[in-house]
Design a protein around this nucleic acid. Sequence first.
DNA 1: TCTGGGGTCCTCTTTCTC
DNA 2: TCTGGAGAAAGAGGACCC
Length: 342
Amino acid sequence: MRRVLHVDMDAFFAAVEERRHPDLKNKPVVIGGSGDPTRRGVVSTANYAAREFGIRSAMPLMTAYKLCPHAVFLAVDMEEYARVSEVFKKVLREFSPVMEDVGIDEAFLDLSGIDKPSEQIAREIKERIKAVTGLSCSIGIAANKLLAKIASDMQKPDGLTIIADGDVEGRIWPLPVRKLWGVGPKTEAYLKGLPVNTIGELASVPLEELVGHFGTSYGHYLYDASRGLDESPLVTHWEPKSISRETTFQKDSDHWQTIAGNLARLTGEAVTELKERGYRGKSVTVKIRFNDFKTQTRATTLDDPADNLEIIRKAAFHCLGKFDLKKKVRLVGVRIGGLIKL
DNA sequence: TCTGGGGTCCTCTTTCTC
DNA sequence: TCTGGAGAAAGAGGACCC
């Protein structure tokens, strides 16, 4: 019988900042962008005090500022969060060697080979993480990744939730479909029209109907997921598939030099990382987002995999030439794909 | 009015090759 | 030489994740 644990750090970025700056405790804290709410950017994390004002992740900083002008706004300090992330993941590996990284503040742990009761392991992990990082986390344990992740979200912050066999009907089915990993705002809205609002209602839709609405792959996924079924293994090692850089201008621009200059700079940064990590790329894609938020991409394939700045920059500018730049541009980005390890 | 940045994966269409 | 079809690869867009 498989047993999977999911750890989710509570309001991670904000919690790290509060630990560094104890005077922030009990104040609303918003982490995002450059930390200047008058500039373009979105909320990465808000602490629980800020959430009481309606501030949420992915909200524009300017909107967050209107909701709570006296909140403390801080810049994202990825280096520090990555450092703390390594510390708590090291703790997890002490409990089981099979760990899957899920971004900076989450991880799965395979407990299948371990004898201890689930609740005891979870409590020990929470204590250890608290001891070495000073931070709290929420933990979910279930028979697979899908359910463990839903479980860790059920009692936040500082939660501990165990989903047992037979709990799906009683504890998962009443939840909104949006709680399923892979169901975002678009799918949620589409399902609402069927009408399907809860995971249980989704489970009552025949497989053929789901495949008709969503295609073979996603249809089957939804069918299984609504029943709490998930065979996917923990992924303990993976290679990057692409490396990208993009930037949103403070002011939309139709000035070619501004767009081209930024593309050249971003391409340089991406190539530097490509080289540092020891890869070559086979394809180059340029992304432009216009002032109406419409996004277009133009891609080209290189003759041979490359990590040479001149070759990749030339390819990027070839792509840039394929755009019709009549509208003002708000974002430019470059992606190097088809990576091959040297 | 506002809507980041760094990724993955899927689907559909177009282009290439045999 | 022309044409068509099949299948692969490339290109574009979009949904989703943290």
